[in-house]
Design a protein around this nucleic acid. Structure first.
Lengths: 200, 200
DNA sequence: AGGAAACGTGACGCCCCCGTCAGGCTAGCG
DNA sequence: CGCTAGCCTGACGGGGGCGTCACGTTTCCT
């Protein structure tokens, strides 16, 4: 990190980063279950033994990657949402932040898409759960602020997360330039209309 | 199938069924990637060699299972939707059928939840895609019939599928008796409100 | 400069999986 | 009843992953 760190330290950072990067690719392509430590090491200039100087096994790398990624995604959508002063902005900006994230970092998206089941099984509620929980909290705050009609915030959060994920996949899979605005518009309209109806 | 079939034939059906059942459990628990043919066989009274009289490899079993399951789920939700005469019924009945299916067959649900990423990677658009495609068609028909306002039916279908999946997971994970009605109500309100807003 | 500690290396032993196949058992037929 | 074809069996060779460790190299400190 510090630019003038000793060579020792710099190599360590580089190796760790190389392993994480390689692992991302492997997990995204093969899926966590089928991936092996060797698959990861092979995408690296390192020897197999070196891997174990950095992580005890493949689960540890996976956890490190997921932790990193979840923190990033969480922070982004949360910040985006908290800026909104109106219900419209609250909903639309959250979706926009998420979709932008997807497009900026397709490798991560692929990783999550491929391993969502494993992540759920391994973190059981945390990680994906954290995203939902965070959103549920944001929704609850929205309710207090009068931006959002009262309802089951937890289920609502699940609905939003599920929608965002699936629509995001679709958006990316479509040929041609991804239509973020179209996706945001649809999702926003959906939930604004839905919240409205739930308020009655 | 025919009750008075020869013993030879009956054993064959039984073995095939045993392998499929065991495989469901293994894939649900370990995930497709980490599962091995031996894991499957071990949950069976059969010898390892016997497996290969029925399926060439684990991918083949997996495909058989997914095909079966997808056809079932597809038929169910489609039938449920096509009975609806009003927009309300169209939307609510679809969700209800799906949630009921989840609760009736938790093992299958677990299987899908754990391996959604693999299914997507392996069938790439078919299977899960088929569900979305079918729904998109149903929606398009709804548009023709004036039940549903015109919009991007494909993205809309994705949103509904994503919502159903994620809300379903949440519903099942909650402690106590699963509240199907609550989930259906929320999803239905959401999409009815959303469709309404999109219509404007 | 010189020595020690830290780290990279890749071969090694152990384990398990894969798909096959020769041998044994039995259902079904004449 | 006896024979044959078809299925079940489990051992087997080949392959490959796992985590370790003794050795060589490099960095850093004095």
């Amino acid at each position: 990190m510090t630019p003038a760190a000793g060579k020792r330290e710099r190599t360590k950072q580089a190796n760790r980063a190389a392993i994480l990067a390689a692992a991302r690719g492997v997990f995204a392509e093969l899926g966590y279950g089928a991936a092996t430590v060797r698959d990861i090491v092979r995408r690296t200039d390192l020897a197999s033994g070196t891997f174990y100087n950095y992580f005890p096994d493949k689960e540890a790398v996976f956890r490190a990657i997921v932790d990193e990624t979840a923190a990033e995604a969480l922070a982004r959508t949360h910040v985006a949402r908290s800026r909104g002063q109106t219900t419209e902005a609250f909903v639309a900006d959250g979706f926009r932040a998420y979709f932008s994230f997807l497009l900026e970092d397709p490798a991560t998206f692929e990783l999550v898409r491929r391993n969502a089941g494993t992540i759920r099984a391994m973190f059981g509620g945390a990680a994906i759960g954290a995203g939902v929980a965070q959103l549920a909290e944001d929704l609850a705050e929205g309710v207090s602020a009068g931006l959002v009609p009262p309802h089951d915030t937890e289920l609502m959060a699940s609905a939003m997360v599920g929608t965002a994920f699936e629509v995001g996949v679709r958006m990316v899979e479509r040929t041609g330039e991804p239509d973020v605005d179209g996706a945001v518009e649809l999702c926003a309209a959906l939930f604004l209309g839905g919240l409205d109806r739930l308020g009655r």
